[in-house]
Nucleic acid binder design. Structure first.
Lengths: 281, 281
DNA sequence: CACGTCATGCGCGGAATGCGCTAGCCCCTT
DNA sequence: AAGGGGCTAGCGCATTCCGCGCATGACGTG
């Protein structure tokens, strides 16, 4: 069934496939950081795989923020990459920035806002650098880094146990700090969000925290780019109070947005510039 | 092209076309270094020129070694220096690393340690990446960043109000969190330290916090490189409990170290490698 | 006034990329 | 033990990006 003109390149059967790819990606990072620059062709030859495979590796490593993509290959981002840089390299950057820009415009100078962890909310923090006076409380390391040198913004870190994966804080310390504060607005991120059940996360600890965050604020926004809508990847859910607002990007299918409208959720669809793009409501 | 010493004259009125392109290239470098990454499309839109022109600019800037080319744009090749913080990391770097290495060797796997804010303690956090299992609680953003991707280290952030200057957390939230925990060791930084009065800082809020930190730990270390010893730049002081240890570098004058010996403080002088260098005690 | 220089815009060919599809292997379930 | 799900690798195609050459317009100079 397959064309047999397949090049007879003596690829041989690699004994273990999964660990092979994992090892290869580590090696790619190592090579790139030591030589500074590595080409796709070079890497394909060195590991005896096709260029497509290398490109997939580079795409993933780039999304993880461990490499920077160049035209014919990849380069190491020097030592400790700037948070803003890693952020921009990450996936769906345009959509996230658009969402962040719209969200930033909702914040009125003088307010106190609460920011969740996550890259989209981190982008919002970056936009809020120019809003002052402003008090920002957050459970996300990304947001703190974005505002670390914004002299005019008052930053409160809620503390807690650092989740390395999401770069956010959770746990009793976070909840105890939250219970002592209320906010004008809260901006929540999500691994996934549905109209009926709300926010879906990997751990119950995260969903409990998000529910608490939502309770402490007057207005609740969920920032989720298009691919986050309607999926059910995990089994921990955070129910949201009535009257919350979903902010997503114009890559969202109408069919993905409709259930939220039907459920009475205010939905805002924005383009990459942060302007409302969808049907007015 | 040959570089000429054309005065900046950035009066804004670029009536001449050459200075216009020159100005645009400078702006591209500035944008790229401040935001980390800039896309061709973005730049073309921002300057209202076509993508071709931007590509020509990027090609030249790349050839000059001022930018690095990426797939859809360009990135800064050196991480942009945060004026205040980078500088503090930069100065006396060797000494601080030596102090940090010695301090890291005092920590036993399985312990719970408390890290203060400050660049020296931040260097310690970096060294502790390889010590596990380990629980690290900290009031310093630098330490959190150093351990943000250290999967094997349990990180607790104490939270609080961010002081932009020192990149540390202070205030009621921090103190409330501290009161609920104790530690095997605490590593304190200092703007200055003297034998009689202890740690000197700019704000009473900081000294009160450091006193509290010292009370919560079995063993107290103060990490201060040579130029920090004996000065009295401010008027807020944190008194230290008996039995604390001063760790400094071999740039310290004997006369600067003597008062600490006389006051019964244990003094450790280390070289740039983190080995005890001074007179054995 | 004529000419050279420089920068910009536009179109083209070539290369690299991303995506969808298919096939093979591992592991878990039934 | 057989089957199915998940993951990975290879391949072809549409898209995007890049570099180059050419034409045009503006400025400075002789």
């Amino acid at each position: 069934m397959q064309p047999e003109q397949r090049p007879p390149s003596e690829t041989g059967g690699e004994s273990s496939r999964q660990s092979g790819s994992r090892y290869r990606r580590e090696e790619i990072v190592r090579l790139a950081t030591s030589t500074g620059l590595a080409s796709v062709e070079e890497l394909a030859g060195a590991f005896e795989v096709t260029a497509s495979t290398i490109r997939r590796d580079l795409a993933q490593l780039t999304a993880e923020g461990r490499l920077a993509r160049t035209y014919g290959g990849a380069m190491a981002l020097l030592s400790h990459a700037e948070p803003s840089l890693r952020q921009r390299i990450g996936e769906a950057f345009e959509a996230k920035r658009g969402i962040a820009r719209w969200a930033a415009r909702q914040v009125v100078a003088g307010e106190t806002v609460l920011l969740d962890a996550g890259s989209t909310v981190g982008a919002l923090a970056h936009e809020l650098r120019w809003t002052s006076p402003l008090t920002v409380a957050t459970t996300g390391l990304t947001s703190i880094q974005a505002l670390a040198d914004a002299e005019d913004v008052h930053v409160e870190c809620l503390g807690g146990t650092l989740r390395h994966l999401s770069q956010g804080f959770v746990g009793p310390l976070t909840e105890a700090a939250l219970e002592r504060m209320t906010f004008d607005r809260v901006f929540l991120g999500a691994d996934s969000v549905t109209a009926d059940r709300g926010i879906c996360e990997a751990e119950l600890e995260q969903t409990r925290l998000k529910e608490l965050m939502a309770r402490q604020a007057e207005r609740v926004y969920v920032l989720a780019h298009a691919t986050k809508l309607g999926r059910r990847p995990f089994h921990a859910w955070a129910q949201l109070p009535d009257g919350w607002t979903l902010v997503t990007d114009d890559g969202a299918e109408p069919g993905a947005v409709a259930p939220f409208h039907a459920a009475g959720v205010e939905v805002v669809v924005v383009d990459a510039e942060g302007h409302v793009a969808g049907p007015p409501d």
